[in-house]
Design a protein around this nucleic acid. Structure first.
Lengths: 193, 193
DNA sequence: CGAAAATTTGACATGACTCAACTGGAGTGG
DNA sequence: CCACTCCAGTTGAGTCATGTCAAATTTTCG
């Protein structure tokens, strides 16, 4: 079962004991989605945390010109959620869409709050998980405000060599904040040097 | 005393009880810095969390061309720390420098870890604090990858009207990732419309 | 196989940077 | 209190990075 992946994921932090595993298992829902299906759509409230057990998904915004801007990718053993919408319970401006056929483990908000209250270890573990995500986002912001497209692209493939092989350059361009056409010329220049 | 500000800050989350307040008080160090003094410098390990009780500071990186890139500002009642360096205990690539004469409340890493272990409420509170910071960073990334300089500037002054009045446009330009000259032309264009 | 999407290429447009010069406070020392 | 310096802010000319649009080609996937 896929929940073993989640339990193993937590063993990277403070491992769960029997009672915690039982409680967690009771509130995890497994959801299978095919490529191009949505886990979240703009206008709806994001009321669950999503853990990717298998596959690959993206979270993005569509701007006023209809263009997609990728905020985050997630593959096996990582979390992807519109935490802003989850917290405030206001409608999301984001989409979460499967790039590959995927298996998602979802925890509903009331269940997660219960886990936090009954088992402080979840507060601890999610604190550390989000700290790590925060650190990665800070590095991304630094690149955004200080690097050229070429530098950002090279940093991306160095940081996420696994992702890089699974997603198209259109997706990477959207994540970096450049057009696919320009990324193409950047890649050409890199390959020549 | 300034520690009251910190205790009050936590009351925005789960309020601290007597024992927690006592424990916290024992590990908070008050530090006064003047304008242009450093709280952290590149090459040193960031081994404390910094809470701004009074004043205003910035955290930035200096790139290979000697240019500053502002990652974060902090004013009263907010946290500013190189969490990456704090976690991994590798030397920081960032500077934290006072923009105004300031009062900082510092918690050393071993003390913070003790607070986490002895009082789970700190895990909870810092989880929520960092979640909020994470949400703000995600919004910033979305602007970085999808907006023009003008849109980013307008979003900045709408989001941080308080900060906007206390710091120079040079600092804002560095935060947005544009040159001060170009920000100047953007501001001129805005004032005309 | 066939449709849809990804990738590349080129001509052109524009947003943003560089560099240099100038102006006008704000702080500092005599 | 003045003279001085330093820095923020502005302006303009020229340049570079990146975007737009359109078209052709290749790849992917159902």
């Amino acid at each position: 079962m896929h929940i073993d992946l989640l339990i193993h994921h937590f063993s990277n932090y403070l491992s769960l004991d029997e009672k915690e595993i039982t409680a967690l298992s009771l509130c995890v829902n497994e959801k299978r989605v095919k490529r191009k299906q949505f886990i979240l759509q703009e206008g709806t409230i994001c009321n669950h945390y999503n853990f990717i057990a298998k596959g690959c998904v993206k979270m993005y915004k569509i701007d006023k010109n209809g263009k997609e801007h990728n905020l985050q990718f997630a593959i096996e053993n990582s979390w992807i959620t519109d935490i802003g919408s989850f917290h405030s319970e206001i409608p999301s401006e984001l989409y979460i869409e499967a790039i590959e056929n995927s298996v998602i483990l979802q925890i509903e908000k009331p269940d997660l709050l219960n886990l936090y209250t009954n088992f402080p270890k979840f507060d601890r573990n999610f604190r550390v998980i989000i700290e790590d995500a925060f650190i990665a986002l800070q590095i991304r912001v630094l690149h955004n405000i200080s690097s050229t497209a070429e530098e950002k692209y090279l940093a991306f493939i160095a940081t996420y060599p696994d992702l890089f092989q699974r997603i198209s350059n259109v997706q990477i361009a959207s994540y970096l904040g450049v057009t696919p056409e320009f990324l193409s010329t950047v890649r050409k220049k890199i390959s020549k040097s």
